[in-house]
């Protein structure tokens, strides 16, 4: 068995919001481990607290209890710049209007390494080109970012995260807005990247069937608990029928997807 190195870990932390003295817990007893070179999916119904968990794991907000460890160090003890060299993100929100070309957008990922003016050294340019090659979009380098398709833009944003050269990449619902073909191609790319580069990738998604087929591990958030395991073991635990409490759908293990109850 190969040695497993944990990049990020959280041991039974509580997540939620603090508003003055008022504390709103979203989930308790959450344990997450992200291993080097693994692709992990985060699934759960809308409003269950996926975003809160992602925000906590990426150090944007502090856990109510416990701590998130990144490379063996508490994530909140990193300076902004040091954290930017360990962790990069890909968001769903639309980009503000700008004239950025695909290359320029990807190159912004080099910011944690460039000088105060952000001037690119040779190494930065090489890394940017390398990142674009990894997502196979180097032919679009000179296009403006608004001239390419949604699927391509999502890949460019991943290239930007790759250029940031971090051991961990966190993606917030990268497959939203894409059709099935592009969803598959994107997840395959993520899988490939973890294998080739040894990076650890965590992404949230609503595409349970795809996530089960392509991820090394899946974190399932239900209203009762948060469970992380391999897809095969999660199937055995019959966890997916606890995802949605509504009786109108059920998970069909033979088909590997949700089926709508007639009537």
């Amino acid at each position: 068995m190969k040695e497993e190195v944990t990049i990020l870990s959280a041991n039974s932390i509580s997540i939620g919001y603090r508003n003055g003295k008022e504390v709103t817990a979203v989930a308790n007893n959450v344990s997450v481990q992200l291993k080097k070179g693994s692709l992990t999916a985060l699934i759960g119904a809308n409003g269950i607290g996926k975003s809160t968990l992602l925000r906590t794991l990426t150090g944007i907000q502090k856990p109510l209890q416990g701590e998130v460890m990144l490379n063996g160090k508490n994530i909140s003890s990193y300076s902004a710049k040091a954290l930017a060299q360990k962790l990069s993100i890909v968001l769903t929100e639309a980009l503000p209007p700008s004239n950025l070309s695909v290359f320029e957008l990807t190159a912004l990922g080099r910011q944690p390494y460039t000088n105060w003016l952000g001037i690119m050294a040779e190494e930065d340019i090489a890394k940017t080109n390398e990142a674009l090659q990894m997502v196979q979009l180097e032919h679009l380098a000179d296009k403006k970012h608004y001239e390419i398709s949604d699927g391509q833009l999502q890949k460019v944003l991943i290239a930007r995260a790759l250029a940031q050269d971090t051991p961990l990449i966190v993606l917030d619902e990268p497959t939203t807005h894409l059709d099935l073909l592009h969803k598959v191609s994107l997840l395959k790319l993520l899988k490939q990247l973890t294998e080739k580069t040894g990076k650890s990738i965590l992404y949230s998604t609503h595409d349970l069937d795809l996530a089960l087929q392509l991820s090394d591990e899946v974190i399932v958030m239900t209203s009762e608990d948060v469970i992380q395991n391999t897809p095969a073991l999660l199937r055995e635990m019959d966890i997916f029928n606890r995802l949605f409490t509504d009786k109108s759908i059920y998970f069909d293990y033979a088909k590997g997807g949700f089926i709508i109850n007639p009537g």
């Binding site: 902004a80 990069s88 968001l91 929100e93 980009l95 503000p96 952000g118």
Partner: peptide
Amino acid sequence: TCIKPLNALLLGERYAKSMGIN
């Protein structure tokens, strides 16, 4: 002195923060 942060802000506030911008 803000040229670099301004470039980061082209992607929005959250990306800028994630790229180490104060």
